[in-house]
Simulated scan of single mutants.
Amino acid sequence: MSAFRLDGEVVLLTGATGGLGQAMARELAAAGARLALAHLDDHERASELAASLAATEVLTVAADLTDPDQVDALFDQVEARFGGCTVLVNNAGMMEESAFAEMSVEHWNRTLEADLTAPMLMCRRFVRGADGRGRIVNVSSQLAFKGARNFVSYTAAKAGVVGLTRALAREVGPGVRVNAIAPGPVITPLIADLADDPQWVAERTSGAVTGNVATPEEVAPIVVFLAAEASALLHGQVLHANGGGVMF
Rank of each mutant, 00 (worst) to 15 (best):
M1P: 12
F4Y: 11
R5H: 10
E9S: 09
T17G: 07
G19W: 04
L20V: 03
G21K: 01
Q22D: 11
A25Y: 07
L28W: 01
A31L: 11
A33V: 05
R34S: 13
H39Q: 09
E44V: 04
R45C: 07
R45S: 14
S47Y: 04
A51Q: 15
S52A: 15
A54L: 08
D76T: 08
E79N: 11
G84Y: 00
T86A: 10
T86P: 06
A92H: 08
E96M: 10
E96H: 14
E97L: 14
F100E: 12
M103L: 11
S104M: 12
H107V: 05
T111S: 13
R125H: 08
F126M: 03
A130Y: 06
A130M: 04
I136T: 02
N138Y: 00
Q142L: 10
F145D: 03
G160T: 01
V161A: 05
G163A: 06
G163V: 06
T165P: 01
R166G: 01
L168Q: 05
A169D: 08
R170G: 09
V176C: 03
R177L: 08
V178A: 10
I181F: 01
V186Y: 06
L190Q: 15
L194S: 13
Q199N: 14
R204D: 06
G211K: 07
A214H: 12
T215K: 14
I222G: 09
V224W: 02
A232S: 14
L233V: 14
M247Y: 05
